[in-house]
């Protein structure tokens, strides 16, 4: 007895003509929903968790200040001192009056450094801040 696979007589192939279109759609979706990665983060940090958190709607208004677990402070692309923050943020605020400063602080940090930075921000007149936190399950 012969075993033979039944095959259709016609040639089989998957139509690939629309493949580029599908990929382009995906591409456009990603272009619209994401924003460009602007800086590399040098410091290592783990955000605290909270429940009553809100989303920042306008990402282009956001400016980040990172504080790592070793206490280093990063603004933009550089590690800075606490005393530099006032100057940097003041210039930023002039370019973008209603900016939001997002503080991404390691949860193991102490309040001393946080209050120092808040004082600098107040001097620079950047009053809208946001303590970055993860959603608690």
């Amino acid at each position: 007895m012969k075993f033979e696979k039944k095959r259709a007589g016609v040639k089989q192939q998957i139509p690939t003509a629309s493949l580029p279109d599908i990929i382009f759609m995906l591409l456009l979706f990603f272009m619209v929903t994401t924003t460009m990665r602007e800086v590399d983060v040098f410091v290592k940090f783990k955000l605290p968790e909270a429940k009553a958190i809100e989303k920042i709607e306008n990402k282009r208004l956001v400016n980040y200040i990172w504080i790592g677990e070793d206490g280093r402070i990063q603004v933009n692309d550089a590690i800075v001192k606490v005393s530099d923050i006032q100057d940097i943020m003041y210039k930023k605020r002039q370019a973008l009056p209603n900016l939001i400063v997002s503080l991404r602080i390691d949860k193991g940090q102490s309040m001393g450094i946080v209050t120092d930075i808040q004082q600098e921000l107040r001097k620079a007149y950047c009053l809208r801040i946001n303590y970055s936190a993860m959603m608690k399950e």
Partner: peptide, 11 residues
């Protein structure tokens, strides 16, 4: 970005 928003008082 998620977090707790706050407005600081003036200096």
């Amino acid at each position: 970005d998620t977090g707790i928003g706050l407005t600081l008082p003036e200096y």
